[in-house]
Design a protein around this nucleic acid. Structure first.
Lengths: 354, 354
DNA sequence: CTGAAAGCGCTAACAC
DNA sequence: GTGTTAGCGCTTTCAG
């Protein structure tokens, strides 16, 4: 073998190059590189040496085309800015790391058209499965998912009918649970602060469940405000200040996520408002943003770690088995409330008339 | 055309199916679907109808193999948990959205072996370019990058020699700048809190630049502490408390990132420590974590938005032109300090003896 | 244990 | 404008 310095490598190397360099047929080289079939130790060694020497990187495109197998799982999520999704992703990766499968991420920014485009692009690579956030998709997206002939797991939400499998929580139930906990603690003048919800279906469902549970006890939202764009502490702060000024009777604020919730909490601390005595607060998602604060915001854990894990397990099992045994699996997890320091039974509370 | 309900679709559709359904040759169907070459409006329409009717999704694997072109850009970053990287990613996506290129993300968790594996996997899909964080890679990784014969942009850091192009800031300089600003403000008993740095080269370089600048003025770090694993407010809190107890003379703490820096700030606020009078604080990265706080932490912007944008532009230009005109481009951006509310000239300060 | 032939689904290049 | 032919780099299948 030559000892010349490695050249710029204009044409990428092929199996053939390794075959020639090692004096072994392409087929056998391929076997060695994939650990398939029996190959004598001596030829194996020769091939491996040659491949490393040359710096050969197999061409998966050709491999996938020939074998009709692509070990990719499309994971389609709305955003990377909301830490919830990186966390789900991490859980997915941990499971898939034990398998030959690999996640490939697509981001939709909560836009259905964008989701459609991302999905189309990903499906055109013929992945082995799809994990996609939410149950709401355009008709075209649904058609693509159904037509792809691969396992599809819709995650995060269970309020609706999945295309195939689903793993998540009921956000309606989550909203109801929080409303009940708040009322039970004795709060009565409740406000809501959240994103504009036409596209964030899960936030909308929580809101619906929340108001529904209030209505059942004869209560209504006292005040509410919605914002555009991403969440930030600053927004939570400002909106909270405005609501409290506009509706001083408010004794609880329910936020659609922890980030603006913590912003609200900061406002209260600065303004010297007694939390949770004069005012209670709660968010959603149990984002670890909180864990260094003197006061922990009441929130709800959506089980995103488990969601990611179980979704990946379903895909892995179905791809591996080739069987459709787990097809149509529907897993609803239970969200759990953590009261933190901002949702406590009030002296007069806990005695809600049934 | 049949009006039967869409069947489960066992075998994915191929160009041939569309060809038969529309009565147009495969080649022409291909032209229509890619908007290449001239096709009469009537055949175009027939093809488009048939394709949509069937729900055909092109097979990019076959397309890529045939055309020897893959419009993917591998983006390799250490983590998604540190918001800096999603932000870089967003900037990259925005630029690539204007082109036929698409980013594909790989995460290394700061582990060189993992980087090597991720890189290998991504390169085996023959992407059109690579954007990778950092200048430190294993020999094997460097060999792969050099051998791939595609544009490579190393981002975030400029303290070292790139394989091809680089876009970033000098973290050594960033550390020096912060040290100088701190000394100039009149602080003298300076402590450092950060991650264990064997694998986080950029944090290490900042630390080195920092101590070097102190040394130039005859100062040394008074105390320091390092932590394992991810950053959190809680860690920043605890470590700060420990340092202040152990070394009560400390008048400034420099953190390796904003998250633990804010944790430290929270500790100070709770403990009633006068910031920045009695104690100054500074972090790194200008993470928007801060923008709702009553006190803003002093920090430094690493220009990650611009880094992502320029890196993507280099790749896009080189892929489009096919030329190597921008090969070897080296762009060093200037970090900017923002003093926030935790780094202010002290009454006795500003008079450092030259 | 190893090799030869065929072909995965698409597109480049060239006819017509 | 449209069709035909060859082949991308690999794996499947079958023969030895």
């Amino acid at each position: 073998m030559t000892d010349e310095p490695h050249k710029p490598a204009k044409r990428p190397l092929t199996l053939r190059d390794v075959s020639e360099a090692s004096g072994v047929s392409e087929m056998t080289v391929s076997r060695v590189l994939r650990n398939r079939g029996d190959v004598s130790d001596s030829t194996r060694a020769r091939v491996l040496t040659a491949a490393k020497e040359l710096g050969y990187v197999p061409n998966k495109i050709a491999g996938a085309l020939a074998s009709q197998r692509v070990n990719l799982v499309a994971v389609i999520i709305p955003s990377l800015g909301n830490m919830v999704f990186p966390q789900v992703l991490t859980a997915i990766s941990e499971v898939l790391d034990q398998t030959p499968l690999q996640p490939v991420v697509g981001v939709t920014n909560y836009l259905p058209e964008r989701e459609e485009k991302v999905l189309y692009e990903m499906l055109s690579w013929r992945p082995s499965g799809v994990i996609i956030a939410g149950l709401e998709h355009s008709d075209a997206s649904k058609a693509m998912l159904r037509g792809a002939g691969i396992p599809v797991v819709e995650i995060m939400d269970t309020d609706g009918t999945p295309i195939d499998s689903m793993v998540g929580i009921s956000h309606r139930r989550a909203g109801r649970m929080m409303a009940e906990a708040i009322m039970k603690a004795g709060y009565r003048k409740i406000a809501f602060l959240g994103t504009k919800m036409p596209l964030d279906h899960r936030a909308r469902k929580r809101f619906e469940g929340f108001t529904e549970a209030l209505a059942k006890k004869g209560l209504e939202i006292v005040d509410q405000e919605f914002y555009d764009g991403g969440s930030s502490l600053a927004k939570g702060r400002e909106m909270t200040a405005r609501v409290l000024e506009r509706s001083p009777e408010v004794d609880f604020v329910y936020y659609s996520n922890d980030k603006i919730g913590v912003g609200g909490l900061l406002h209260c601390l600065d303004a010297g408002i007694d939390v949770p005595g004069r005012l209670g607060l709660a968010g959603f998602n149990n984002i670890s943003l909180l864990d260094g604060f003197s006061k922990r915001l009441a929130t709800m854990d959506s089980g995103r770690e488990e969601i990611g894990r179980r979704a990946a397990e379903i895909i892995a099992a179905r791809v591996e088995a080739g069987s459709d045994e787990m097809a149509g699996e529907r897993i609803e997890l239970s969200p759990t409330i953590s009261r933190g320091d901002t949702l406590r039974a009030r002296p007069a509370g806990g005695d809600y008339p049934e």
